[in-house]
């Protein structure tokens, strides 16, 4: 089992979510997060350009069985990449080993609980 964490652009959420559903990856957790990357995102307040220190992003957490890692990752990459081959700020994907997964209702453990 793996835990896949993806940091993506806010505006790409709908697109990524729809693509994941099409790929039958339907169990996801979504968070609003802020962070530092290499991207600069300009806001304007009373005529002054402001570069926020922290840029709003969306974080997806998806726990999957090993055989679904590739399709999940490829789907996210395809849907979250900006037009014309990607831009700074499109985000990152982290994959971590997942020790255990428990479904609270039935108390079942492991791959079948995902």
């Amino acid at each position: 089992m793996k835990l896949i964490t993806a940091i993506i652009r806010e505006e790409m959420l709908d697109q990524v979510r729809e693509a994941l559903i099409d790929a039958e990856i339907t169990r996801i957790t979504v968070n609003r997060v802020s962070g530092h990357g290499r991207q600069e995102s300009l806001d304007i307040y009373r005529g002054k350009k402001v570069v926020p220190n922290l840029i709003p992003k969306i974080r997806l957490d998806i726990a999957v069985n090993d055989e679904f890692v590739d399709i999940t990752v490829n789907t996210i990459i395809k849907a979250a990449k900006s037009n014309s081959g990607g831009k700074v700020g499109d985000g990152k994907i982290f994959i971590m080993p997942l020790e255990e997964c428990i479904r609270i209702r039935t108390e079942e453990r492991g791959g079948s609980a995902i």
Partner: peptide, 10 residues
Amino acid sequence: EHGYGMLNAS
């Protein structure tokens, strides 16, 4: 601009 600044840490 963003209407709801407080939705994210900034």
